[in-house]
Each structure stands twice: as C-alpha cells, then as structure tokens.
Nucleic acid binder design. Structure first.
Lengths: 206, 206
DNA sequence: GCCCTTCCTGACAGTGGCTGTCAAACACGT
DNA sequence: ACGTGTTTGACAGCCACTGTCAGGAAGGGC
C-alpha cells in the first residue's frame, strides 16, 4: 500500500490545512509573535499537543509551503535540458516560483507572508534558513549535472552562482510581490541579466 | 560624560567577554543546543538573569561579534572612493572580513563557529538573518552613494548585487575557512570574477 | 566618616514553545 | 462484536526569556 492514499492520510491532510489556514488568519490579525499555539489550537478545536503532531514547530505552520515549493524548484531544475547553462537553468526553474503565486488568491497570501516576515525577526530567520537549504540542494544537483556532462566545475563558484541567483529572485520578488506575474518575470529577467555569471574558461577533463 | 568610558563600562565589558568565552567553550564541548543558559551562568559564577542582562538572547552570545563585523564592513564600504564601481567596492570591503580572522587564534575561532552553525539549524537561521540585515544596510549605503554621484540605479538590481556579493563571500569563506588569508583573498577574487555584475546601460538623469 | 542617589544583582514567578508519556477514544478489518 | 493499531487529550516537565522587586555595592557631596 503506497503512502499518502488511505482515508487516514486524507483526513490528516485536511486537519493540516485547517491548522495552517486558521493560524495564518490569526497571525495576520494579531501578529506572529503575539499569537500563541494555544490560541491556534482552541480556534481549530484541538489540543495544543495535536498542533505539534501536525507541524514540528510554530514556524512550520507558515513556512511549510515553502518547503514543497523548494522541492518543486529542485525537480524543475533537474528536469532542465543539459544544453542550458547553469544560470539559465536556474532562471527557468524560478518561473515556477513566480507562477506559483499567479492566482489572485495566492497573491494575497504571498504579500501577507512577506509582511509577517518583515515584522518578525524570528520568522525571517527561519525563512532564510529554508532558502539556504534549498540553495545547498540545488548546488548539489548542478554539481551532479556538470559531472554527468563531463564538465569540471569549481564547487565554490557553483555555490556562489546559486546564491547569486537566489539573491536576484529574492530582490525581484520582494519588490514586485503583489504585481502581475508577467511584470515579475520581466523584472527577474532584468535583474538576472545585470547580475550574471561568466562561465570560467571551460576546463578540459583530465 | 561620554558613554563607554567609566569604570562601570569597563567592568561591564569584561563580564561580557567572560560570558562569551565561557559560553563558546561550553558550546564547543557539549554542543549549542545541549548547553543551557544555567550552565553558562553557573560556569561564570553569576545568575541566569544576569546573562540576559549582558546578552539579549542565547544566539547573541555567539553572534554578537558578527554584528560589530557587519558595522565595520559598512564603514569600510562607505569609505571607498567614488571612482570604484559597486562590485569592486564590495570586494574591497570584504577584505576586512577575511583579515579579521588572520591571526591564528581568531582562525580557530572562525572554524569553530562555522562548525556550530552547521550543527544547529536554529543558530544558522539566526546567523543568516544577521547577514541579511547587513546586506540591507549596505544596499542603502550604495544607493546613497549612487544618489550622491548623480547615477540612477535600479534599487532591485542594487539589492541583488549586494546579495550576490555576499553569496560569493559566504561560498568562499565557508570553503576556505581555516586556510591562509592570502588563499582566501585569491579564492574570493576568483569567485567574484566569475559571478559578477554587468552595469546596465548608464542611464542619464532626468 | 556618613548619607544619598544610582546602578547592578540575585531570587522569584510567570509565559510560551516544545517534548515525553500514557491511558482513553477512535477507526478499521474480520 | 472483537481485537489491532493509530490518534487524541491531559499532564508533567524542560528551556529560553521577561517583569518585578528588594537588597547591596559604587560613587559623589558634605
């Protein structure tokens, strides 16, 4: 029996979503730090202990969504053709991050989370750590890709490249968070063209 | 009476240093999460309450040093001549970050903190948030500089530029943390030459 | 030397995130 | 209806962190 298909898993996921929605409402109206887990729990109608059965920490209630987004980004990066260079492949993977918030409902969600991040240093720190984790995974994937293609790459440059690409994404998305997706694509293109990577002299393989 | 000059301020600072040193020793031997504030307090010979009078949080005991480094970086960036472009000015400011850990004593200190960051997600998050804060301050400084020079800059590109520069610094320093400063300078040069910024078509001022 | 003000400290109590435990309640197949 | 396995709530506890408050030390004026 494959995991995630039983009735149990369905109800479990429903509860997860309900906790996340309730928590987000409370965070937006009262602020993140000011909202306690007990308040979330009683608003949902469960015990505080159960909240921690569905989410490992308070931060995760808000940021869990970014984890799955990170995984999707990773998959899309892996799926990019070998003909693309690293910088372009990263840019194309980022399409997903922008389109994710294309629907009007999600767009409000994105701006809301951004405001919460601005107001809570703790939450911002948690967010940045997740982004860092995704960067490390992406760096590893790009290293595998280069290996497969027989290219020799400097791992430090690769890490810096991924970090620079994310810096562009962050700058663009934080600026144009509530804008049209098309405008965000244009902005990100502009930024990623300005900050870009010069592929070092293609080293032959020993 | 100017602040920071009385006998009071001197003893206060001595206690701060003692707490920081004691805490670092304990963190290194037992791990960050495993060391409680009570253990630090009793090792120093003061109450737990007093520890929080000297440092606002547990993270700060370790990371406070990075705050002052961030301020120094900011000052050096501001002091760079107007003839330098942003990317070069950032690179020159980073000289300070590398040379900071030049002395053998400090070098061990740096590698130690890096290991702690790797082992504690919470600590890593706190560190990343600080770095992000410094980035924002630097972006503001560079924007002022451009304004002063009569250049028109895209604030989003500027933010991404600073982020990219820090991505290079992070990648280089995390790789060659225990190496000679000279080697670190060379590595950072290589990375910052690979990932670099193309100044967009110089816009005339309206 | 004495007093007065100011600052610092330790002790105590309390909050909130988070974890371990355990017995009762529940869902499910038979 | 019955046994099995999972989920739940209640309770207790740890730890980072904060407010409060009385007692004591430091420093200045006399």
């Amino acid at each position: 029996m494959e995991p995630g298909t039983g009735l149990r898993a369905i109800t479990r996921n429903a509860v997860r979503v309900q906790i996340a929605r309730t928590a987000e409402d409370l965070f937006l109206s009262r602020g993140y730090e000011e909202t306690t887990i007990d308040q979330i729990a009683s608003a949902v109608g469960i015990s505080q202990r159960s909240v921690f059965r569905y989410f490992p920490s308070k931060e995760d209630i808000l940021l869990d969504h970014y984890d799955s987004l990170g995984q999707q980004l990773l998959e899309r990066l892996t799926a990019r053709p070998d003909t693309e260079n690293d910088w372009t492949a990263l840019r194309r993977a980022f399409d997903l991050a922008i389109d994710q918030f294309a629907e009007p409902g999600r767009r409000a969600h994105g701006t809301a989370i951004q405001r919460l991040l601005d107001r809570s240093p703790h939450l911002l720190a948690a967010y940045l750590r997740r982004v860092d984790g995704v960067q490390q995974q992406m760096t590893a994937r790009l290293a595998e890709r280069a290996e497969r293609q027989g290219r020799t790459v400097d791992p430090v440059v690769l890490r810096a490249t991924v970090g620079a690409a994310f810096a562009c994404l962050q700058a663009a998305v934080f600026q144009a968070c509530g804008d049209e997706p098309a405008a965000q694509h244009v902005l990100l293109d502009r930024v990623m063209n300005a900050v870009h990577v010069t592929v070092p002299a293609p080293a032959r393989r020993g």
